[in-house]
Structures are given as C-alpha cells and as structure tokens.
Design a binder for these strands. Structure first.
Lengths: 342, 342
DNA sequence: CTGAAAGCGCTTACAG
DNA sequence: CTGAAAGCGCTTACAG
C-alpha cells in the first residue's frame, strides 16, 4: 500500500514529473499540453488513487494552506460553534485548520503558537488570553498574518473582529431598567480583557443615563478561572440576608458565570425573574431550557467566523500590501426570553 | 524576519548541518560531540530563535507527529470537551491535532479523511457518521493507524473506545422503574449506529426484566438531522391528549434530543418530574440548571480521550506488530438529579 | 509543447 | 568525533 507519487504517474505514462504536475494543478491549458495527455494523466492519477503530498507542496512553495486557530475555551459552546464556523469557511477556500484551546492560559497559548509556527501555518486566528500581549506583539513584528477574535489589546495594532460590547451591555442593562429593575448587579471576570471592560462600561453608562448612581459593590469581578463556589460567594454577597433585597437583577458578562450563577440562585431558593431578573452574554443551549429561559446578548457567530477567515486569507494572499490593520465591530442582538419578567 | 534554518546555525558556527541536527535532537551525547560545541549550538539556536520546520522533518522522516481528529458534531458539548481531552493528551506526547467536525455527514467526513491523508497525519481518531463504513474500511485496508470513538461498525474490525451503552440504558431505565414509572418512552435517532441501537436494546431489556411489555409505539426514532419541531411532534404523539397520561417517563438517547425535548415539554405546560420523569444520555451544562435538573448517564470523557490517544500512539509506534484490534468498553455513571422525582 | 535540474529544510546512512 | 551527500515529494524557472 505504498502511496503513489507524482513520479509514479510519470513513469507509468513515460512522461516527466513536470508535465504531470502541470496537469494535476490544472495548468494543462496554460502550458498547452495536448488534451489527450491531460486525460491520460488524470485517468492514471485516479486509477492509482493519487493524493498529493501537501507537506511536500508546503515545503516547496512555502505555503501550507493551513491556518492555526487558538480559541480560549472549547468547553464553552460559544467557542465550539465559532470554531466550526471558522473551519467550514476555511474549507470553502481549501484551507485546513489546526485547532487549539488555550483554556485562557497564556503559557498554553504561547506553546501553541510555537507549535503552529513550526507547523508552518500560513496565518493565525486567535482569541488571546490575558497576559499574552507579548505573543501577539511578536506575531505582529514577524509580519505574520493574524486576526484576533472576541478580544484584542488596544495598545497593539491588530486585525480584529469583535462585537460592540459596550453597546450590547448598555442595551441589556437598559432592558432591565425599562422593566423597572433598579438595583442591578454585574458579575464579570478579571477586567484585564477589553471585551470584559467594555461590557462593564456599557452597564455603568446605562445606569448613569438613567440617573442611577453606580454602586461599585454591585460589580463583582471574579478571577478568570473561577468555579461555581466563587460565583456562589459573589451572589450571596450581592443578595445579602434573606429579605434584604439588596439587588433585583444581575447582568452576567459571560455564560459560564451565568450558568453557575443560575444554579446558585436556584439553590438559594430565589425565583427568577420574581426575585432576581437576569440577562447574560452568549446564548448556550442551557439558557433555552433553564428554570426561566434566559434573556441573552446573542453574538453573530457565523459572521464572526466568516469575517475572520476572509480577513485572514486576504492578508495571506496580499502579503506585499503595507499592513493596514482592520477592525470590524459587529452588532449583537438581545433575545428576550422570560428571565426578566415583563 | 527570515526564519532561521539549521544551516543558518551551522554557518554561524562554521560546523556542519549534521552536527547541528544531532545536537538539537538531543543526540549530542550519543555521537560524542564535545560539550563545548553542544552548548554553543544550543546558544546560537536560542539566540536566532530557531524553530524547526516540522514540515521538512515530516517530509524527510515520513512522520508528522500529527493526528487527525474527526468528531461528529462540535456544537455538542460532549464532543467539544472530548476534543479538548484528546488534544491535551496528544500534546503530552508531542503530537498535534488537526480537528474536524463532520456534523454527522458522511460526505463531509470523506472529504476530511482525504484532506487529513494529504496532510500526512500519522493516525486518525474518528467518531464515524452513519454510512461511512467504506471510508473506515479503506483506512483499515491501507493499514493506517486509526481508532474509533463513541461508535463503531460491528462488521468492520477496528480499534475502538466506547461506553457500555446497553448497560447504561438498562440502568437508566431501571432507575425510572424503581421510582414507580411504568409507561416509559424512549426517544432516539436513526438506529443505524451501534451506540444508539444498544441504548434502545438496554431500555427494552430493562422493561422485559421488569415484566413490562415493550410498546413499540413508545419508541420514537427521529432522523439524525432532526430539529426541535421533529422532537416536539414526537413528544406530542407520546403524550397524547391532555389528561390521557399515555406516558410517565422518557429516556432520551442523546442530549440534543433531551434539550429540545425539555423545551417542548415545558411549552406544553407539563411538569418535570410530576407529569413526566426524564433521564438523558450525556451531561451538558444545560441539564444542571434546567427547570428540573436532569438525571443523566455521564460518560467518562477524560478516560475516553486518554485511552484513544494512547491506543493510537501505540499503534503508530509499532506499525510492525500484526494488527490485533482492540476494543475498550468503559463504564458510565448515573448522576441522579431531580428530573425523576423520588 | 515537454523535460532535466535545482531546491524547499530537514535527517541519516556512509565515510573518514 | 565530524562532514559531504543523498533524498523525502513536490514546484518552477530555464532551456530547447
């Protein structure tokens, strides 16, 4: 079961590898190779089940038609689906995807970038974890095509596709306000990442615009690697003693927080939305069937994935163009379900 | 920003590529290269930020240290997490993973296998969609290392890691019986895949062992690419007219079915577990926070992933050993929550 | 219109 | 102990 190579086909027909290569790459016409020979080559290639060795091609041409994808956390459905969109879009253009999950760990993403670099990927799509600035800078310095998704570092010039997190949080908070909620908390993670900062900023601005003073005690910032105990502690602090009614709504900045949060709220015997109204970023399945289906900020995953791939391929194909970085900011939509009452 | 190659280092030091290659591959000792030179090589490699070109290595050695992974559906958290476990375990042994989602589509998986083959992966981990028998056979014929996960084809000899689906469904059904449920339905997908067949078989056997006649009308088999409307229709049929009480429990054979099912049950105004008790395969976040947290058959994802990688690497490293196929059947555990009452 | 030859960046017998 | 050379499977100027 030896694999067949170009020269196997060439020998088989008594022609040169050059010719076979031309034909198989669709350049038969261009080099005016007789149709007869073309057909024979194609036939033999099929017969011997020829599969081009992409690795040899890559070594020779310097392009591997592979892109490296580093997402932040595959256990998060948001990134799972985003990964699939990216893989599908890439496949449409004949590109393969090497897929990594950094689990929000900069050490890991560093190793993964090195690995992808050694694999000679043509470009990168990355949702960088915090403290990975230096890695991204080094990509930029090397003039390697890359695009960032979900977050970026404002101090580093880069291509990136993000959503308007400020606007999304603003509208989500406004939705709560419009339903009469006044004591709205925000649970978020480490404010080292721009997307998280902007979400909390949008929340703040909405309160201000409604002439409600922002109470910093109602903003809970958890470590990135929180578990449900951390979330439970935060919620208990926010809720206060029974009957105290310190808050009447929560904006969760991620679905991981929200899922853990809802679990905790239920176990505390509190009712959604009666006691506490809820809005969360992202739209996992969990929110559709939970106690009180959750009103969410839905991100356009398909569009993020498509745009990221197209932007990257454009960069890969025109390396000459002096790098002008592009920023794409997509809109989110608020899907209203039952978790805020009415 | 030209990448540095072996010969750059060699020139820099006035030695041969051979020597540099030996040192960098940790064979300095073996070839008794003076420690002095070794250190210098290492130093210069670091200084020039040398990154070995894995593609060139691959072409030369015939091994790419890459494994191809085709999972059935990345939008399913089960496979997302399984993918991560596999990637992590592979990384421990210095292997990269090229990640694909076939979306249960045999056309897609066929293309993906061809793509992975062209990328010269050293082996495959696949959860094959139905109607992909020929693809798997062709791998087997080519003596390509591969292991199947989650399902396999009984008529094709293969390495595979699965769970004891019969036992799992048997125990799940028994759990429902032990709580006094008598009219237990099973919602599943196309019975073309062994894992699904075994789940329904386990369900049947549990009923028989409890001297309950299996009512084929209570087994709903949906197409693989079902949406929530299909699930809703099935449930309406099962439930019958209001007050009819045709069933008092459902075993869902997949979490996709279960998530859609619960959404539908709620919208019908039925209560879980009072009107209908529920057990489902798989353990997505959704089940933890839903209306009535769902009792589930939990699969040992970490173990499946680890075992799959180790079995594959073993195969890759000993291609000489006459291929004796291995079967690993892992146990599941039943996580009891509130969806079955008590 | 077609072929011989160089070379991508490695590894590895072989020779000394 | 170290180096020159071949070769993995391709592509692509170059020559005719």
């Amino acid at each position: 079961m030896k694999k067949t190579s170009l020269s196997d086909i060439a020998k088989h027909l008594g022609v040169s590898k050059t010719l076979v290569s031309f034909v198989l790459n669709g350049k038969g016409k261009e080099f005016r190779i007789s149709e007869d020979i073309c057909n024979k080559v194609l036939e033999v290639a099929k017969e011997l089940n020829y599969q081009p060795n992409r690795i040899a091609q890559g070594l020779r041409t310097g392009r591997t038609n592979t892109i490296g994808l580093i997402i932040a956390d595959i256990a998060n459905q948001f990134f799972g689906i985003l990964g699939r969109e990216i893989e599908q879009e890439a496949a449409r253009y004949g590109y393969r995807v090497i897929f990594c999950s950094s689990d929000e760990n900069p050490e890991k993403s560093k190793q993964q970038i090195a690995m992808l670099q050694q694999s000679q990927v043509d470009g990168y799509i990355i949702s960088p974890p915090k403290n990975s600035e230096e890695q991204i800078r080094s990509l930029a310095r090397g003039h390697v095509p890359f695009v960032l998704i979900d977050r970026y570092f404002p101090e580093i010039e880069s291509n990136h596709i993000v959503v308007d997190n400020f606007d999304a949080a603003y509208r989500a908070t406004n939705h709560l306000l419009s339903l009469g909620r006044k004591k709205i908390a925000n649970i978020t993670v480490n404010l080292d990442l721009i997307n998280m900062v902007q979400r909390t900023e949008g929340y703040r601005q909405a309160l201000r615009d409604a002439s409600i003073q922002v109470d910093e005690n109602l903003i809970k910032v958890l470590p990135f690697s929180h578990d449900n105990k951390d979330v439970a502690r935060a919620i208990k602090e926010l809720v206060g003693k029974p009957g105290q009614k310190k808050i009447d709504a929560i904006l969760f900045s991620t679905s991981k927080l929200g899922i853990n949060g809802i679990e905790c709220i239920s176990s505390l015997g509190l009712k959604i939305p009666d006691d506490i109204a809820i809005v969360s970023f992202d739209n996992p399945d969990a929110y559709k069937i939970c106690i009180s289906p959750v009103t969410v900020v839905n991100q356009p995953l398909k569009e993020i994935g498509k745009t990221a791939v197209q932007m990257l391929l454009n960069e890969i194909k025109h390396p000459d163009v002096p790098s002008k970085f592009q920023e794409v900011i997509l809109k989110t939509d608020l899907i209203i379900r039952k978790s805020c009452g009415s």
